[in-house]
Amino acid sequence: MFLPVGDTPNPRNYTPWVNWAIIAANVAVYLLISLPLTAKGIQPRDPLLQEYLQYLAPLARSWAELRQMLSQLTAYDLFVFAHGYKPGAPQLGDLFFSLFLHGGFWHLFGNMLFLWIYGDNAEHRLGRIGYLLTYLVSGVVATLFFSMFAGRSMLPLVGASGAISGVLGLYFLLFPRNQVKVFVMLFPFFMNVVLLPARWVLGVYLVIDNLLPFLAGSQSSVAYGAHIGGFLAGLGIAWVGEHFAWKWPWTDQYKDLGRRPQAKDTVIDAEVLAPPLADLREAIAQQNPNQAFQVLQQVGREELSQLSPTECAILADWLEQAGYSIAATRLLRGCLGQRANASNLADAYLALGLLRLKQGQPTAAYQHLLNVFDYNPSPETAERARQALAQIDVYRRK
């Protein structure tokens, strides 16, 4: 048995109220609605039963099988049929309400366990409102993605799995260096908690548990399509959020950094630098941020790509101090993407990690600070990364 029980690192002194509220809402719906209705029988004269039978009858292979189905029906089955999302009869209210209905205790338990493990980091990174909106949007996208392959089916879809898959997609992109605590029980040989890379665990969830069965056309009560759709939605939201540093883009004067139009036939020669870039480099060398800002908007993307990672790190620090965090983030991410073979990438990763730390995002900083040591950092850079990592609470299995 392999059971995820936690993750590391987590934000220090942070209470994920929205995540807890979502968990509480799901549990409350189960205790107050699902559980009582599950113990309640059906009323033969219920008009909803007649409608349900029109859907149920074609699924039975014999009269005896239909009678057996009817004998196992509960009031909750009819409630799910009425309020679960049905691709063949879509309703806006069902689209959202179905996210809080579950097929049973273990369905609820598995979903809430995953939300408890991964949701706190996601909420801390996105903010409370942003996290709630992302959760709901992911759930809606997951349901609609499922509907694309369900045709006119009247089989109701219920559960928070699609929305939670969106959280997992976010986590996959935003926290690649995190580790998941997994309780492994191979009785009687091995019982212990092991740490596994988060992307391994989430990769198994996406590919082995969902994508392969989906492609194979597996007949199951599990909505693989919803899980895949939610995961893709989370990935997309994370990519857009990182691109804008999780801030409204119009709040940053330098949001279009590096987008100065270039002549189509112009070729940038590393040995013949355009005057704006030469001025920018001179300002960096002279430690003059005001002069750098004066010429910054005149520098195009191709010219910015000529900056070394160390120059990017210095300029990004100035931008962050001046309140232009979107520009600082874009500059560093662009530098890391365009200068993949540079010898001093460790400086850029350190700058991005320290930037995240200044923004109060230690778990996001952790991802970049660990990358520092993969790029042969100088002793000074390595020491600064170690000092920053020491500020982050990390669970270590001894």
Rank of each mutant, 00 (worst) to 15 (best):
L186D: 14
I22Q: 05
H107L: 00
L232K: 01
W20I: 11
N341F: 03
R330D: 04
L170I: 13
I33Y: 09
S305R: 10
A24H: 04
N121Q: 08
S165N: 13
V141Y: 09
R386G: 07
L319R: 13
L113Y: 12
L215F: 09
C312R: 11
V80M: 00
G323R: 12
F146I: 03
A216C: 04
V184I: 15
L273C: 01
N111V: 05
Q91W: 03
F145K: 00
A89V: 02
Q287G: 03
L49C: 11
H243T: 07
V240N: 01
L319Y: 05
S98H: 03
F189A: 07
A351K: 04
P362M: 04
G258A: 04
I314V: 15
A163N: 04
H243I: 00
M112W: 04
L3R: 03
A21V: 08
Y171N: 06
E242R: 13
A263T: 04
A382Q: 05
A226N: 07
A316S: 15
Y52T: 00
W246E: 12
Q294V: 05
V137P: 00
A39G: 09
T266I: 06
V207T: 10
F187L: 10
Y366K: 10
E320Y: 14
P16I: 02
I284A: 06
S98K: 00
R61E: 14
T381L: 06
C312N: 14
G241Y: 06
L59W: 07
V222A: 09
L70K: 15
E380K: 11
L212S: 01
Q321V: 12
L277S: 10
L48V: 08
L108P: 06
C335D: 09
P16K: 07
G225L: 02
L95F: 08
A245K: 09
L315I: 02
L32C: 13
I314Y: 12
G127H: 13
P36Y: 06
D393Q: 14
V295Y: 10
P362G: 12
L115R: 05
L354S: 11
F293Q: 05
A198I: 07
Q298D: 15
S343D: 13
A346W: 09
L215Q: 04
L257W: 01
G229F: 06
L350T: 07
Q262V: 13
T363G: 02
G84W: 02
I22V: 15
G236H: 07
Q391L: 14
G41K: 04
G159C: 02
L136Q: 06
D94S: 11
L315Y: 14
P176A: 14
V299R: 07
Q338W: 12
A39C: 05
L78K: 11
G258D: 09
A351G: 09
G119Y: 12
P58C: 10
L186S: 12
N19I: 00
A274F: 00
L113N: 14
L389P: 10
V167T: 14
V295T: 14
G230V: 03
Q387N: 12
L235I: 15
G353L: 03
G225A: 13
N26C: 15
Q72G: 08
N192W: 01
L304C: 11
H368R: 09
L32H: 03
P309H: 05
Q179D: 06
L31E: 08
Q262T: 11
